[in-house]
Write a protein that binds this DNA or RNA. Structure first.
Lengths: 231, 231
DNA sequence: AGTACAATTCTTGTATACAAAGTACACGGA
DNA sequence: TCCGTGTACTTTGTATACAAGAATTGTACT
């Protein structure tokens, strides 16, 4: 029952940040399930630290929306509902479109080169059929576009929203039949940015999210991850 | 013993949340200036609590971007640069437009009634010339639109982004010559939402932010609030 | 007089101790 | 058997103690 939960001593970060990253990762990968309680002493023993860094990490997770606090009862992993996912995707659609538009105006020549390379890499990755490889190529591609905006606040928000769906990012990749679509969508975004066509880029980005939404919502209806809360 | 800075014991929130709200308010109102150090013991003495709730509050402020952490040195109030403000406004433009679009589709009849009332109230407020009254009417009006989206994540994000500009919200109201514009912009958003015209509503919302941006950027160039960091 | 080094002090990072509150369980009575 | 009350335990909330690192200041030497 003891997961490999120990802290990584390679990190020279404050313990609170190590704990924060560890817990966040555990939540996003589903190791800690929605509704599961986060009890400070247990976590402290398990991670080999005191309660203080645990508490500080939980405060940050609370503000990120990954855990919910219940007064005098403590923290538990936040439930994921279909509504909350749709809310996130609705915002992401707007922000991804904004990213695409801004990237059109602001991408550098180096950025364009990197984008081309990432786009090709993604196409290569789909041929391997390796889900993890494809997912990484996908993230890399999007990251270039997001970074190209040069808007730090936007970058931070997009990253946070993306994380909310980390648990589902494999779902829309597993379906092999969608690969061709994914490649085409990426290529469309890529070409629009190269042409500097804001409208087309934004539209392509929205379409891309729409298709992801389809896959994710379909999946969540088949396999709801949320667990009923214990009382 | 009730000094102006002591915690309000009426609140039944955990101390960390009281401290969090107190510090956030102090930062947003400019009581704590950019670059100013937040030293735990001093704050603890000032607020009459121990370091623990102070630290937990700082963790949350850190994630909100209102303070920046310097390793082994502590927290200081985040600098506000023209760039960071423009970044925020760029995101807000997209999200406010999204709000307007969603409000078109989802606003209820009660919402429409409230919107009409708020719109009229705002026009009334401009006639009084009271800056605070106008600002409150402005916030109320926008809040109705934001709430009408029914998207909790969006509501949370917009509120957070709005707060970042709390310090400047009076600036674009002080200028009396802009009042007529403000009323017209609000009326345009209002009418678009009533008609359910998404495109027009989004465009009006963007224009509204653009004009605010003009005022704020103009102001910040006259009176930069950021202070150089001490070394 | 200027520079370098050392010591002191200040501040954070971490751990632990203590208090308060809520919950669960058991026991007793109806 | 069921309900209510009381007690004990669990868990959070808060405070404080202790250690380690960084900065500043003072002093000594060149």
């Amino acid at each position: 029952m003891d997961h490999d939960f120990t802290v990584n001593m390679d990190e020279f970060l404050p313990l609170r940040d190590v704990v924060f990253n560890t817990l966040r990762r555990a939540i996003l990968t589903g190791e800690l399930k929605p509704g599961e309680r986060l009890m400070e002493i247990h976590l402290a023993n398990r991670l080999g630290v005191s309660r203080t860094p645990i508490r500080e990490a939980i405060r940050k997770l609370e503000l990120e929306g990954l855990v919910t606090m219940i007064p005098r009862r403590g923290a538990e992993v936040a439930q994921i509902t279909e509504k909350s996912l749709q809310d996130v995707l609705e915002v992401r659609r707007a922000l991804d479109a904004l990213c695409a538009e801004l990237a059109c105006d602001r991408i550098t020549v180096e950025g364009k080169a990197a984008l081309k390379k990432a786009c090709d890499s993604f196409e290569e990755a789909t041929k391997t059929g390796e889900v993890v490889t494809i997912a990484e190529a996908d993230v890399a591609l999007h990251d270039i576009i997001v970074q190209a905006t040069g808007n730090q606040r936007l970058i931070q928000l997009i990253n946070n929203l993306s994380e909310q769906m980390y648990r589902y990012r494999f779902e829309y990749i597993k379906d092999e039949s969608g690969h061709e679509n994914l490649v085409n969508e990426h290529r469309m975004i890529y070409e629009s940015i190269m042409d500097g066509d804001r409208e087309k880029a934004a539209a392509a980005a929205r379409l891309h999210i729409d298709n992801q939404e389809q896959s994710i919502i379909r999946q969540i209806r088949i396999d709801p991850r949320g667990k009923p809360r214990r009382h």
